[in-house]
Simulated assay, not measured.
Amino acid sequence: MPSRALRRVAVETYEPVEPDPDAHGDIDDRLRLIFTCCHPALSMDDRVALTLRTVAGLTPAQIARALLVTEPAMDKRLVRARAKIKHAGIPYRVPPPHLMPERRDGVVLALLALMLLQHARTAARTDAVGDVVTLEEQDRSLWDRDAIIEVLTILRSLVPRAGRYGLQASIAACHLEASDAARTNFARIAELYDVLAVIDPSPVVELSRAVAVAMSQGPEVGLRLIDALVTSRGIDDYYYLLPAIRADLLRRMGRRIEAVIEYEKALQLAPSEAEKRYLGKRLAETRR
């Protein structure tokens, strides 16, 4: 059953609608919320922000950090998206059968693939005390291989209509298909990010691509890309992963003093205690 909070948000956010004769029975409110938040009348940025806020329950500050915008800008985006839903009369429902293929196949299946892949390594993401374990250091025997196989089947059904979420799922699949971190096909991941950057340009995509290039072509190449990103985007003042990644690349290059400075920056910006503990450990190791 959906939580009381979800029911309250649904009531406060959306106008009442008449029962849909084509409804698929007693569909969970959460599914109705997802389809409403992801209505094609909304821009993709608004869909993402509204889904993260309404369905996933993230705060505007958390969403702003994830999407690299300021919190006031995110507040305005959410208000705009809710107003568009109200004024456009977008119904709070699962789409009727004749609209389901275009709404489901292009978004929900790709998003499902991405979510399944992220869920597949849940057991390996943190250690026994709750500290962060990076993808490179995770125990891959803890990954859910059945979920990974299911996702690969979904991805095959999506090609060539992958879209944003399909590409992200394909990137995640490249990581999860590798038997160990050293066997990851980072060159292929960089190519997928090239395509993603065309259809969904953002600093996050560019930063992720730089990391993939660093892992396939060397930390020096990746660091040059990241430095160029800082110059063009100016995101280092509020995005903790940027100095964290720079610190890791500098450490791999043996430039430990510079790495320490970047780890200290990342530590100050990290949003959670688990991430602060992880960065603190890396900082201590680099100082030795």
Rank of each mutant, 00 (worst) to 15 (best):
D20H: 08
Y240G: 03
A120Y: 02
L78T: 09
M215K: 14
E15P: 02
I257H: 10
L155T: 11
T134P: 00
I148E: 03
L78Q: 07
L192F: 15
D29Y: 08
D105F: 08
H98G: 08
L112A: 11
L135M: 13
R252S: 12
Q138D: 04
D227A: 01
H24Q: 13
A259T: 03
C38E: 03
L158Q: 13
L33K: 00
I149N: 05
R140H: 05
A49K: 09
D144P: 05
A41Y: 06
R251S: 13
R287G: 04
D194C: 12
R121M: 11
D227I: 00
A113F: 06
L67C: 13
P2F: 02
A49V: 08
V129M: 05
P40E: 10
R125E: 15
H119N: 11
S216I: 07
I235R: 12
H39L: 04
P19C: 02
P219N: 12
L111I: 03
A23L: 06
R121T: 03
R145V: 13
L167P: 05
D200A: 13
P271K: 07
L33D: 00
I189K: 10
A247K: 09
G280Y: 15
L196T: 13
R82T: 07
P243C: 09
C174Y: 10
R183K: 12
G166S: 11
A61G: 15
R183S: 15
A110I: 04
L42N: 00
A212D: 08
Y278E: 03
Y165D: 12
I149A: 14
M253N: 07
Q217E: 15
A212I: 07
A270V: 06
G280W: 07
A73P: 01
T153G: 09
E12Q: 14
A147C: 07
G57R: 02
E150T: 15
P219V: 06
G130N: 05
Y238G: 15
A228V: 00
A110W: 02
P21G: 10
A197E: 13
E150N: 09
W143G: 05
V213H: 02
P95F: 13
Y263K: 12
L78G: 10
L31E: 13
L33P: 01
E71G: 02
E285W: 02
S202V: 10
A187R: 13
C38K: 04
S179Y: 00
A64N: 14
K84Q: 09
G106L: 13
D180P: 01
H175I: 09
V11A: 15
D22T: 02
R32F: 00
N185E: 14
E262D: 14
R209W: 01
S232C: 10
L111T: 00
L112W: 06
L152F: 05
L155C: 10
E136C: 04
S202R: 13
T13C: 09
R255L: 11
A178K: 02
R65M: 14
T286Y: 06
D237P: 02
R121P: 00
T134F: 13
I245Q: 09
D75G: 08
Q118I: 04
E177G: 00
L283D: 09
Y14Q: 00
G57Y: 03
A81F: 01
I245F: 03
E12K: 14
L135D: 12
